[in-house]
Amino acid sequence: MAAALADPHTKPMLIKVKDLKKIYSLGGEISVAALRGVGLEIEAGEFVAIMGPSGSGKSTLMQILGCLDKPTSGKYTLGGVDVGSLNDNELAEIRSLKIGFVFQQFNLLARTSALENVVLPLVYSGQAHQNEKAVEALAAVELSDRANHWPNQLSGGQQQRVAIARALVNNPDLILADEPTGALDTVAGGEILDLLSALNKEGKTIVLITHELYIAEQTRRIIKLRDGEIVSDHNNGERSKGGGPN
């Protein structure tokens, strides 16, 4: 019980972001600051929504959290690894082992079966038992019977579930979902949110980017961004299990 003696606020965070800045140079002397010093911490097992209007910097933040992009300045630590010091190949490795992506447009490979789409991250990280793991992940999103279908033979909701299976297959520390319901109708979108909630209850850390409040309210913590800065960060009372409102 040594852990119980430690101060709960000093236990290792999954995500630690400190004074993160991202400045896009548009050529010449014109530059745009997409993030102006963001700091945040996310524990393992959290279900967090990042909200904000267009241009608030939420997509930029997601790209940096997803190791797709590097910040201009500031520090980002993911699972104890200082991401800022990694090169392109090491970032690719982090993406394939620690992060699962779910995109608004699904981004499945055309003319490629659901199973082969799901297997893709395993192929690039070179893991063993690739097919078994992919079959398992498809079962987790209840699409076992569609394993050999191409994306164009699946509904939007089914395609997004294949994408979630692909995000899950590497057993990642973090699932990043960028407007996962943005291209779906309300019913299919609701199913996807239920699926993400269920995954969170099984212990997955999920960060969801959205601009819809009713979607954000399905999560346990809402971070609001505006003009590249965090304007609010609070627990979502109704859904939260531990900890009171701050």
Binding site: G66, D88, A92, R95, S96, L97, F101, N107, P121, Y124
Partner: peptide, 16 residues
Amino acid sequence: TREIGLRKAVGAKRKD
């Protein structure tokens, strides 16, 4: 291009 982006997002390296 989008396919390349997706492959990179799920962990493809330059050499892949």
